[in-house]
Design a protein around this nucleic acid. Structure first.
Lengths: 183, 183
DNA sequence: TTAATCAGTCAATAAGGCTGACGTAAACCG
DNA sequence: CGGTTTACGTCAGCCTTATTGACTGATTAA
């Protein structure tokens, strides 16, 4: 399952060239054209970024929904179904179908909550952990290369912009989850 | 609502000691935890980013597929169907369904190629251009705010990392399309 | 005891991908 | 010229992931 590479027949656009950081050029920096470039860069980078695990998933008959569930169960071991629902922002019917498969396939275990027995706490089995690793490995490798080629300052900027792109009213929660200090 | 921290004190980008970007610090910078934070930041930022136009689209009974088609027709006026197919990386059946709707609804016009009469050149009508603007406006506004809050250097880093995340064998084509100078 | 919450399920619907098979017009080429 | 390839369009069928709405069962909270 992969997307075609390359865009044949497209000649270069009017390049804008180097990086700008002088005071007077700050305004110029935010032209519609600059913003549009950002939009497209995001589109293509994210597309390639998500194509990595898709191949792994396809082999096992899973989709991105499974990936997301596995990722956040790995990230927050013992998370409840409602908690996962909250993070993923999908309906419980959608999540449930995915979860059921993963439980049946022995990748996730559900344990009844001790304090609140209505809850089901989710955890990865060793097999689930293994799949998680094989899903995230290519993404981590892609990021590792991009980060190391771009350099630490670029990475700091990358994160800073991404953080500011998140909805105001969800940012702190996300940053806590991610493990960054909310401002 | 709060748990493990990331690696503390890593806010400024280059680690504890100022602007150094020595080899040893670069390695420290790229722990699995750091990479995982990057993965999640991307996930959440992109999710919010794409949620903007979704509301606009839903009103008109369109989906993201329509958005992508409109975006790239706007970007490359007169693009052929095959060219669009290449950029989007979908099958022609998928694209065609979307394109047919947009043509029927008067947002896109197809004109037979003059040099090659097999080709159909795609262009936005004024109505189509209007929709494109209302789709991209919230995204541009989100980016504009994020960029201006993060500052020019952060933006430069943001773009640098995104560029390096794109597949090697598609990067130059993408950067040409986007309007950046391929390195 | 009653109400609210958490989890799970059934059913129907939709968007948007996919493959495969065809058809037509036009261009390319030996 | 005639055969092959290209560009576009379309029919039919399938799959995954998402939606809404209605409902059950267990458990907790008021």
């Amino acid at each position: 399952m992969d997307r075609e590479r390359g865009i044949p027949g497209l000649r270069g656009g009017a390049g804008v060239g180097g990086q700008v950081s002088s005071r007077s050029e700050q305004l110029l920096f935010l032209t519609d054209e600059q913003l549009r470039q950002g939009i497209e860069l995001l589109f293509f980078a994210y597309r390639d970024f998500t194509s990595d695990p898709d191949a792994v998933l396809a082999d096992r008959g899973y989709g991105r929904a499974h990936h997301r569930a596995i990722h956040f169960v790995k990230r927050r071991p013992g998370i409840t179904v409602a908690g996962l629902l909250d993070i993923l922002g999908v309906t419980k019917q959608s999540l449930n179908r995915v979860l059921r498969q993963l439980v049946e396939d022995g990748l996730i275990v559900q344990t009844t909550g001790r304090a609140d027995r209505r809850q089901r706490h989710l955890n990865l089995t060793p097999t689930g952990d293994e799949l998680e690793r094989s899903l995230s490995a290519p993404q981590r490798e892609r990021l590792r290369r991009a980060f190391s080629e771009a350099g630490p300052d670029a990475v700091a900027g990358f994160r800073k912009v991404l953080e500011r792109m998140i909805d105001d009213d969800g940012r702190d929660a996300v940053l806590s989850l991610v493990g960054r200090e909310p401002r």
